[in-house]
Structure formats: C-alpha cells, structure tokens
C-alpha cells in the first residue's frame, strides 16, 4: 500500500501556475530546519519520516510550511529536545500576549 504522501499518478485538478512568494513566517520555518540540520539536531531523513507520519488528514489539510513546522515540533519532542509541557505552556502564553506577532 502506498503512503498518503506518495502522490505520483493521482488525479488532480489544474496546476496553479501563478506564484505565491513565501511569507516571512514560512521562511522562518525553513530557517529553523536549516539551523537544526546544521547543528546536527535533525537529519534530513528524520524530517522526511516525520512528514510521512503526520497522518493523511493533517498532511492534506495543511500547507507546505504548516506540514513542515508540525514535523519539526514532533521530531523535537520525540528526541527530547523540547517537552510537550513546555510547548503547550508556551502556546498558551502566546495566546495571552497582547500583540503576539513577532
């Protein structure tokens, strides 16, 4: 059985060739991945495995950057770099900020 990420040969509609430039937060996701790879915290295959373990629903309902930030955070939790408690506390704290956007 092929994985949900394996899209080759599936039917799909027309390609949206009009381009969307990456936004700042999307570039930040790429920057995090680049730094974590360079620091030896994450490997390219670990990132791929995490993307392939998000589940079909999360994978297909998310954008590219959204998938990647989920994969990064899952991997960091799995490897014990950050904890679930720390992460949920920080997310709640961001919600309480008056102006949370950096």
């Amino acid at each position: 059985m092929k994985g949900y990420h394996d899209l080759g040969g599936e039917s799909a509609g027309p390609i949206e060739t009009k381009e969307k430039e990456p936004t700042l937060w999307e570039k930040r996701v790429e920057a995090l991945l680049m730094l974590l790879t360079r620091r030896g915290v994450l490997k390219v295959d670990e990132n791929r495995r995490a993307l392939e373990s998000l589940g079909a629903d999360a994978y297909h309902n998310a954008t590219y950057a959204e998938r990647r930030v989920m994969a990064i955070s899952n991997n960091l939790i799995l490897k014990g770099v950050i904890s679930v408690d720390e992460l949920s506390a920080r997310l709640a704290e961001i919600d309480r900020r008056a102006d949370p956007l950096p």
Partner: peptide
C-alpha cells in the same frame, strides 16, 4: 501553525 513556529523558535 504560526503559533507553533513562534513557540518552537523561542524554546
């Protein structure tokens, strides 16, 4: 997901 990026980056 944006919040997730902020949280992970800050940590």
């Amino acid at each position: 997901h944006r919040k997730l990026e902020i949280a992970v980056r800050e940590l």
